[in-house]
């Protein structure tokens, strides 16, 4: 396990910030409600770059952090359309162009009998678009992230709610950020380096 990063409150924190590049200041909250308080407090004081790390999706955090709705739906729609078009081309080209063969007096291609496979391929490609699109939008897989260095990160997938005020935000100041997190009820406040 990594050593805990420089604790705030010690005089070292701001100086370290000059030397090593800082990811941000991270604190732990005990409940989703407490986390939301922390988010609102930080936003009210002008911190706009932040992220929360939680064991399950916390309702209301998108609004509190000012995150926009996911655009994933459009990617999935695209996947579905590609699947449907591919199914039409597949059935039309194989049946009516590549090997035209009359079976049971039925037409070489028709949407009536094409529909089941059009539907299935649309769903198949839309599902792949949903999963791969989600991973792409999230930048996953990514096996290293600074927040993993937070000494109590392991509990973010268990029962704790972390809030990170990120250093790349406007007017970031490690000491002030730590103060905000503390006064909002955050505990185990740490500066985490990149």
């Amino acid at each position: 396990m990594k050593e805990p990063m420089v604790r705030t409150g010690t005089a070292a924190a701001p100086q370290t910030a000059e030397k090593v590049s800082i990811y941000g200041v991270v604190a732990e909250f005990e409940s989703p409600e407490a986390l939301l308080e922390g988010v609102r407090a930080a936003r009210a004081l002008g911190y706009d770059k932040m992220d929360a790390y939680t064991p399950f999706p916390v309702h209301g955090i998108d609004e509190a952090m000012g995150i926009r709705r996911s655009r994933l739906g459009w990617i999935v729609l695209g996947g579905g359309i590609i699947g449907a078009v591919a199914a039409v081309l597949l059935q039309w080209w194989t049946g009516a162009v590549a090997s035209p063969l009359v079976v049971g007096g039925k037409p070489l291609f028709a949407f009536e009998f094409g529909l089941p496979i059009i539907f299935e391929l649309a769903v198949l490609l839309a599902a792949f678009a949903a999963v791969l699109g989600m991973l792409a939008l999230n930048g996953l897989p990514r096996f290293y992230h600074p927040v993993f260095k937070y000494s109590r990160f392991d509990r973010a997938a268990d029962d704790r709610f972390l809030l990170a005020l990120e250093a790349n935000g406007a007017g970031f100041d490690a000491e002030q950020a730590a103060e905000i997190l503390k006064s909002a009820g955050g505990r185990h406040v740490e500066v985490v380096t990149e």
Binding site: D51, A52, Y53, T54, P55, F56, P57, V58, I61, D62, M65, I67, R69, S70, L72, G133, M134, L135, L137, N138, L140, P141, R142, F143, Y144, H145, V147, F148, F153, A156, A157
Partner: peptide, 12 residues
């Protein structure tokens, strides 16, 4: 896959 439970990730 390096999942870290980020609020931005949960949204997607």
């Amino acid at each position: 896959l390096g999942w870290r439970g980020s609020a931005r990730h949960w949204r997607h």
